[in-house]
Write a protein that binds this DNA or RNA. Structure first.
Lengths: 240, 240
DNA sequence: TACAGTCTTATATAAGACAAAAGATACACA
DNA sequence: TGTGTATCTTTTGTCTTATATAAGACTGTA
């Protein structure tokens, strides 16, 4: 471990481990080397490795089991991890995500400002459908700058079963932080009404998110609509 | 610090500090003794105190400033800390909370089950109004078991400016964890429509929460309705 | 008064020793 | 030959000690 920088050692370890995870050195749910092995590898103490892993566990990148090991979390994206719970009940269910399409568009005034791009910049518009127990309950529309996601292909998105976050991570080396989520109730417009099979003007739950990379630059703008007559939306725990 | 139990020391320190905070030993935004002083007081090392405080900082009970000290957070409740952000903008504003009323009712089938009480048990029904920039944007209805909150008085609630969480804490020694929040979009019923000054059937954002104490027992059931034509709801960061 | 050093007191980081948990293995015994 | 039990090994978890870094107060000097 380089001692040049005035950056704390455990921060450096975080970077090293994060990089290794991103590079796919260990697969999801596969155990990392033990804390002692990592300590030797980076030339620091076990306690320091531990402190670094603490942070990554807290961020949801890793998880631990005492006496067993430390493992790479399956990084699925925000909506995939959200729960949809029946109105008077506990538990709830995770949605199945289905790709609708992915087209190349140009940024209008608003989108350009949100994503910090110049007007007319190329964007990907990705649309996904969410199902719970077979029935459609949600529709999502995402916008990604083409500059940062070159050659975004339907096929690749489909292969990852709609897991956009994993795709960003594996194919573009971009780890995204889920930004703040904003909630509204809006009347269904005709487009949403048709896809979600509800009447126009029916109340829909709207979620708006801006996912940023670790440098804080906006990367993915997402707007989603949900039916909530039967199910309530519950955000996934601890957004790193 | 008692060494009898098999409970880790830092857990014991967490309990001691939490108790002291609850007892009002240090006021909000007042600095705790230094980590070294606490270490001496509890008969453990600074590192152990630190680990305990780490947890409380993470839970939002305390906050720290390097070289200065550790302080008690101002524990306001979920809604008071939520942000209401304009549709196309950043920032946002915290709501002002206004008490509407507090009446004694008896639990129906559903409420009894939710709060784990017998049917007909006495409950407090508390209603609050939320304003942003003067205009009414939200209405909340809460239900608390009378058994756990004896002599809940309007006056006391009003004195704390509607800060229910602080009240639970100071007057009843009960520290609440905000449970999971569930979101729905619902059409306004006439009661809500009147108070929120919208048309009946207008879409409203509905939030449902069940706050539990640290033993996991349900204590406060809350349902809130929000207008969201102009403002979006953004949950407060890190719910302990 | 303004400024720069330094002192004090706080939190932050790092390393090492030891404890506890979970599997894996070996062994006694029916 | 199977079966339960003790023990061993590997792993994460806890705790202490020592030291670094940050912030503010203090102090002497121009």
């Amino acid at each position: 471990m380089s001692k040049l920088a005035a950056i704390p050692l455990y921060r450096q370890v975080i970077r090293e481990v994060t990089t290794a995870v991103d590079a796919g050195e260990w697969n999801a749910d596969e155990s990392l080397p033990s804390e002692n092995d990592l300590a030797r590898r980076f030339g620091v103490s076990q306690g320091t490795v531990r402190k670094a892993l603490d942070v990554l566990v807290l961020e949801g990148v890793l998880y631990r089991r005492q006496g067993v090991g430390t493992f790479v979390s399956d990084a699925s994206d925000f909506l995939a991890q959200a729960m949809f719970v029946p109105l008077s009940g506990y538990g709830g269910e995770k949605p199945k995500i289905e790709m609708l399409g992915c087209v190349r568009i140009h940024a209008g005034e608003q989108l350009a400002e949100i994503l910090g791009l110049r007007r007319g910049a190329a964007l990907w518009q990705v649309r996904r459908l969410l199902r719970v127990a077979g029935t459609v309950i949600g529709l999502e529309e995402m916008f990604l700058p083409e500059a940062n996601f070159p050659n975004l292909e339907m096929r690749r998105i489909r292969e990852l079963r709609g897991n956009l976050r994993e795709l960003c991570w594996r194919d573009f080396g971009m780890r995204l932080k889920d930004g703040e989520v904003r909630y509204r109730a809006v009347p269904a417009a005709s487009a949403e009404a048709r896809l979600l099979q509800v009447e126009v003007h029916e109340p829909l739950l709207q979620l708006v998110r801006l996912a940023r990379d670790f440098d804080g630059k906006p990367q993915v703008w997402s707007v989603a609509w949900f039916r909530s007559e039967q199910l309530a939306f519950q955000a996934p725990p601890e957004q790193a």
